[in-house]
């Protein structure tokens, strides 16, 4: 099976003498559903940032979608990010844009802004039950609704990999269930690889998943 993420002796840090992730070795298969857990400050989000190139490996090798992340060029990083969908805990929606345009963002970047893009956005807004809010602006929506918009945006361009950082933290039950069902659907139906960083793995998931736990800079697979 193809590997979407491969880490070999991967060390991550923000400062010179401080290591957050130390010499980690792991790989994530294409089409798998992975949870990464750990205590606050354990390095879960840092690891996720390394996956989308927000920080570079301090030591070792990291490859995402077949692209080496060490000293990655801007053009390669942009190319990789156009094939990744990211969901952030703080949503990261563009406040001056309508909900519809926010969902359209990855399609605008990829050059699909015509009817095809419009239909895709309508379909996704339907999935996240926000079609009636399409013309509104992010600050007009609740936190749960905003995260559903962010989820629709992450799926808009049919990415090969979805990275989600605490996607349901502080969300109401309904919004959380919509998020999880969309992530499950993307994984089960589209075979999209899903990597979720979270404190708690939700119960009753309908897809098989892998669980990595970060403790003191080490990444261990939990059986």
């Amino acid at each position: 099976m193809d590997k979407v993420i491969i880490a070999q002796n991967l060390s991550l840090s923000y400062k010179e003498f401080e290591t957050i992730i130390s010499k980690a070795n792991f790989s994530i298969d294409a089409g798998s559903f992975v949870f990464i857990t750990g205590a606050s400050g354990s390095g879960k989000s840092t690891l996720l940032k390394a996956f989308y190139g927000a920080i570079e490996p301090k030591q070792g090798q990291l490859s995402v979608g077949g692209i080496k992340m060490n000293r990655i060029s801007t053009s390669k990083l942009n190319f990789l990010r156009r094939h990744i969908g990211i969901v952030f805990q703080d949503y990261k929606l563009i406040k001056e844009w309508t909900i519809e345009k926010n969902v359209m963002l990855p399609l605008i970047i990829s050059g699909y802004t015509g009817d095809v893009g419009g239909a895709q956005v309508q379909k996704l807004l339907g999935h996240v039950k926000l079609i009636h809010q399409a013309g509104k602006y992010p600050p007009e929506l609740s936190g749960g609704e905003q995260q559903r918009v962010a989820m629709a945006r992450a799926l808009a361009h049919n990415p090969i990999l979805i990275l989600a950082d605490e996607p349901t933290g502080n969300l109401d039950e309904y919004s959380a269930s919509v998020i999880w069902s969309l992530l499950e659907g993307a994984n089960a139906q589209l075979k999209t690889t899903v990597v979720v960083v979270t404190h708690h793995i939700p119960e009753g998931l309908n897809v098989p998943y892998l669980h990595y736990h970060i403790d003191a800079g080490n990444i261990n697979e939990i059986a």
């Binding site: 190319f79 156009r82 094939h83 990211i86 990261k92 929606l93 563009i94 844009w97 990855p106 970047i109």
Partner: peptide
Amino acid sequence: AERMSIMALFGAPV
């Protein structure tokens, strides 16, 4: 800056 950094996260060229 915020809008531009969000766009960068989705691979928008400069």
